[in-house]
């Protein structure tokens, strides 16, 4: 496997504060993977996302994106083009009043020729399922639709990595589902590496790998099964497990002969039926 993002002894702190947001942080993300980043508010996740595409620069250590050092100013656009960022509030990242103009924003900045922009915009909008809305305005769309447009705006840069910072936090269940399905499709069908920052454990369970952060350090790192089986540690850090996993854990604790970390309802039902 090839690494696409790598941090080496990354340290970061804001100028006006003594506290370090990230300290000696080492993380490698494989190309084509889908990683969920968990941690409570203030654990350094959002800063990390911005460090990945050089919106913030490390105060110590190095961040490499596709082998490029983010401190290298000459490569700035190349880095940002490679690693796109989607933020929590869909309203505050849409620049234009017409959907297709918004999606065109990044390719325009990159100086892509007009006909090529047209093609990229159409492709990106089709990819997130918003092509029919290309002439609509953001204020006429639902939260989930706006967030998909924001994703299309990144896809139009043809990035290798897409980092999403709590993209579903402000959405209703329907919007969440739309966005999560879009992320999965980008990852599985288009091979784009996805890094999803979330507070929603059901969403995290869909990733190949979960990294749990606390106080600027990595607390846990593993597959969803490995992570959610650390029930006690997660609860102690103020995180959660999916409700179904909690049920399997409690039943296991109560002496029922089933796995302690089950991620899907069907799996749990099957195991219970077997032992009853």
């Amino acid at each position: 496997m090839m690494e696409i993002i790598k941090t080496e002894n990354l340290t970061f702190g804001y100028e006006d504060s003594q506290k370090k947001v990230l300290e000696q942080f080492n993380l490698t993300i494989e190309k084509g993977s889908f990683t969920a980043l968990l941690g409570h508010n203030g654990s350094g996740k959002s800063s990390l996302a911005k460090l990945f595409n050089a919106v913030l620069l490390p105060t110590g250590g190095t961040v490499y994106v596709s082998g490029m050092d983010t401190k290298n100013e000459a490569l700035l656009l190349e880095i940002r083009k490679n690693c796109g960022l989607v933020f929590q509030n869909p309203d505050n990242q849409l620049v234009a009043s017409i959907i297709e103009d918004d999606v065109a924003f990044a390719p325009e900045n990159l100086g892509v020729p007009s006909e090529e922009i047209r093609k990229r915009v159409d492709d990106a909008l089709k990819c997130v399922g918003m092509y029919e809305y290309r002439l609509s305005s953001p204020q006429h769309l639902s939260g989930g639709q706006k967030q998909r447009v924001a994703i299309a705006g990144i896809v139009a840069m043809r990035p290798s990595v897409i980092v999403l910072d709590e993209p579903t936090a402000m959405l209703d269940p329907r919007g969440r589902k739309e966005v999560v399905e879009t992320i999965l499709r980008l990852n599985r069908e288009y091979g784009i590496t996805a890094i999803l920052i979330t507070h929603n454990m059901e969403e995290a369970a869909l990733a190949d790998r979960i990294v749990v952060m606390e106080k600027g350090k990595i607390l846990l790192d593993g597959t969803p099964e490995e992570i959610f089986s650390q029930y006690e540690i997660l609860k102690k850090t103020g995180l959660d497990v999916p409700q179904i996993t909690e049920l399997s854990y409690q039943l296991h604790q109560a002496g029922l002969n089933i796995d302690s970390c089950i991620l899907s309802v069907d799996e749990l039902v099957e195991q219970i039926t077997k032992v009853l």
Binding site: P173, R174, K177, P242, Q243, I244, L247, V265, D266, L268, V269, I272, T273, L276
Partner: peptide, 20 residues
């Protein structure tokens, strides 16, 4: 309509379908 019952309730419903 894109809503759901809690996961435990869903599990219980499925267990009942299996005759438990």
């Amino acid at each position: 309509i894109g809503l759901s019952v809690p996961q435990v309730t869903l599990a219980v419903h499925k267990l009942r379908e299996k005759g438990i």
